[in-house]
Amino acid sequence: MEEENKLPRRAAIAQILAERQDTLVVTGLGSPTYDCAAVGDHPLNFYLWGAMGSAVTVGLGLALAQPKRRVLVVTGDGEMLMGLGALATVAMKGPNNLSILVIDNEHYGETGMQQTHTSAGVDLAGIALRCGFPQSVTVRQQADRSYTWPRVQLSLY
């Protein structure tokens, strides 16, 4: 980890979803699904709890079918890494109503906190940029907590 990250995920997701308005939200399996559900269930949430690697493509299909609605995919680094090609497919289609938020804790949280590739420096935001996303940034917020929490990669279209 290049920089220390102190971003509490539940609070960060709660803050982001508080401003969702009528955004359609698709969540990737594992903790991101729990994080979003923990904010409170919402009729415009679609939770994946399997089909690992599919969160971004579900979001893409929804964004293409509903071009006037904003779509937000919330997933983790492990799920995103399994479907990296989807970033290329999204970039090729270029929907301007799709945002992808990767909660990157550099670990597979559901299976015993084994390290993922991002722990070795694989840069998801960089990959998205090189695929052709007009914007892609990694956010590491400082929060007033006694524990550290990982970076969030907020890739915005």
């Binding site: 690697g53 579900v58 479907g83």
Partner: peptide, 22 residues
């Protein structure tokens, strides 16, 4: 709306999303 995929499984996600979108 044709979409070329990097791998076939992407299509299952895209069509699921499209169906959710009507």
């Amino acid at each position: 709306e044709p979409t070329v995929l990097t791998t076939e499984e992407e299509g299952i996600g895209i069509l699921a999303g499209a169906w959710l979108g009507g």
